[in-house]
Design a protein around this nucleic acid. Sequence first.
DNA 1: AACATCGGACTTTCAATTTT
DNA 2: AAATTGAAAGTCCGATGTTA
Length: 340
Amino acid sequence: MRWTTRRIHERPLDLWHHHPSIPLPTPIVILMDSPQSLPPSTPLGSAHSSNYLGSSDGARAHEDVMGLPWCHACRPYVHVLLSQGTPSTSIAGASTAAPTWAFSSPFPDYICVPALVHRSQLAVFATPVMNPTTAASPNPSIDSVSSGSPIQRRAKGVKIACTNCRTANKKCDEGRPCGRCMKLGMDDSCVSAQRKQRIRRVKQTTTAITVSATQVAVETPIPGDGPSVSIPASVHIKAGASYVSETQEMADASYSSPVGSPLLADLDSHFTAAQYPGYSVYANNWPTQTSTEHHYPHWGHGSDGTHQHPAAQFGGSVVGMPPDGCGGAGGMFQSPRQQF
DNA sequence: AACATCGGACTTTCAATTTT
DNA sequence: AAATTGAAAGTCCGATGTTA
Ligand SMILES: [Zn+2]
Ligand SMILES: [Zn+2]
């Protein structure tokens, strides 16, 4: 089996289409735990990637979940620890109804949702922790999840603020004088600030990568293995990159950047659970066979050939099922991020 | 109410490093 | 040369304090 690592770089999600070589549904399930980099103070409406469950990089706004070109229909699932990944406050327009895209997780206190769901969309699961299926619905008429109503994101700033606005930490505009300076009668002093020269710095060697934003791990139960609650082991995922089974050549060259076989041995040398407290890992069961049958290691095949949701094979109750095919971009998995 | 400050949450840039 | 990736530097929201 060949593995490919790739990462989406500064590309709006909407531009991604489902890639024919990526099986549906995806063979990867992400387990997210202890998202300590999601401070309660983080605005829920923010487009900050740490707000997007499953994002592998909490510091970048433009890079994508797990570095893979998922379309809405094939994105992986994230098991979110409710007590920590759930926003404690709701946002305007957020649904309080049990969403149909959420699943109960086989892991206690987790729920299973598609990766890239905005954190705010979990408001429905806010404390006290409750079963998605029985969650009350105080305001069922408003459902930002299924309706895809956008969540307010921070306004885009100007390229370069005037010195006055920069100093005052206030919003500037492109005009010179800018609106604020005009309003305050500071027309004369309104000049564009100068960007400082960046100080020279030396990069450290890579091994101690910060495990950021979404503490993730992949787990890959063999189909038909029955309940597979994995045991914390070493980390099998590299920050900023992820791996997808590549059993056929990529049709679209722009998506691929083939790499050798960065599998376990490789990655284990970089990460251990001990090194990163709080980084719970559930990766004890990577697929070993190379059969093309293994496109769906997670979901397995139902007797009728359809794919099963992981929750199903774990015996968890499925609250809803993901849509089939790749036409779901505008549907229930729609990202709240407008700039996608 | 209008304005000044400012902590800090996002965002954008860019250059060091790694890949191709 | 191009892609990654760490993190410096930038924008500005929103809370708080001051002034009128
Ligand atoms: Zn200005
Ligand atoms: Zn100005």
